[in-house]
Design a protein around this nucleic acid. Structure first.
Lengths: 220, 220
DNA sequence: AGTAAGCTGGGACAAATGTCCCGTTTTTTC
DNA sequence: GAAAAAACGGGACATTTGTCCCAGCTTACT
């Protein structure tokens, strides 16, 4: 299986936007914009005028269901593309994208983006790759979050978090796992009691080899 | 939100394969093959030599986790494409595809498919649409299956099933919802007791208006 | 500094879901 | 058409997860 990534990044697309387009091509069709933490790049149910390529910062892609609960589809980091699905399908946004830190992103008008993907083979290829990758990630995650108890998914998450410098709000991590914050805390406590994670370390952390062993236990 | 589809179909791609390619183009690169119910079109972890376009029959795309449990990513019907993600990404299969009824599918060598998507704008467009659509569906489903209790997801499933003539094995429906067969049965029983579904009808069935009302109740 | 707002951690209980199991029914196979 | 295999339905119980709630702690604002 391909590596699980919690924060999706895409250097190739960022490089393309920054280096493959001339100033003349960008004109007023491609420009930078900044959102403060908490700002919305896209809103569920609305149409959007731009496709974005995140340059810096961290954001979350989430769906708010009718009962008010949130599900986090993924976290986006450097270079990731957003809003392109709606352009391809010509549908309103399925998701909301909210900045978690200050976010700077390239904005590309939907018209120009639509033009680019049909006329620029390189971007077309990068887009196909990005979609394929995200489809795999989404399926793989949906699968193990359904199939394993929450604690297992949490361990996976923690092992990924350990490689991250960023700190997340508990609520966001819980939403990502599709459990309540209470359950999230409960699992954390149990992991602490079983000395699997370090209560004293700066933040949640799990040793690589401990993680591997536990995964094997679940799999047996 | 776009309409939930339980069985993915794609007439456009099937039409493309059947009508847009000449016999000379097909040669030994595009041909029909048939699998009996239970046969595997793709196997998780393996590489594949062909991309398939299902012509007739019903199949399931599923992931078997290390603990032996299955998660069904989607059901495929007429025209749906499979195996293309692996070709785009050049990775082994993430999923297994198993025929539920007898399945007939066009087989396209991976080389030729890779050629087509870079040289045929029409197929390229259909592919982008298909990927975008499935990404939306997968995200939307992962979201509500995590966010709502199983019974809600089940109602959604039943309302879709009602439009289907095909009959599914309980195990497959349970795997699709990510619950045990026992839980599935329990929920069914409760729905029957609450007279929401008809115990006597040929199969599971739910009235459209009853469904709408229940959805509203969950959302409140 | 001082109050309000919002995280955080966890107790107590309720509800949902899983596991194990067994008897019945349906389907397959020879 | 009988035997074997698979699917079905549900009881009893264990485990997991959610809901409600409250008290302590941090952060933001004035």
């Amino acid at each position: 299986m391909s590596q699980l990534t919690m924060i999706h990044t895409n250097r190739a697309i960022l490089t393309f936007i920054e280096n493959q387009l001339t100033e003349a091509e960008k004109k007023d069709r491609v420009f930078l914009q900044t959102w403060p933490a908490g700002g919305h790049l896209l809103k569920q149910g609305q149409g959007n005028k731009y496709v974005f390529v995140q340059q810096t910062g961290l954001s979350k892609v989430h769906i708010t269901e009718d009962n008010g609960k949130d599900f986090i589809v993924q976290f986006l980091g450097e270079g990731e593309l957003l809003g392109e699905i709606e352009v391809i399908q010509k549908t309103p946004n399925l998701t909301t994208v909210t900045a978690l830190t200050e976010v700077t992103a390239w904005c590309i008008t939907t018209d120009y983006f639509a033009y680019l993907i049909t006329h620029n083979p390189e971007l077309n290829r990068l887009l196909l790759l990005s979609l394929a990758h995200r489809l795999n990630q989404t399926s793989a995650r949906a699968s193990y979050q359904q199939v394993y108890p929450a604690e297992y998914a949490m361990l996976k998450l923690l092992s990924v978090l350990a490689t991250q410098q960023t700190s997340f709000a508990k609520k966001d991590l819980a939403d990502y796992l599709g459990v309540s914050v209470r359950s999230f805390n409960r699992s954390l406590k149990q992991l602490r009691e079983r000395s699997i994670i370090h209560p004293d370390s700066f933040d949640l952390y799990i040793e690589r080899d401990v993680f591997e062993r536990l995964m094997r236990e679940y799999g047996e």
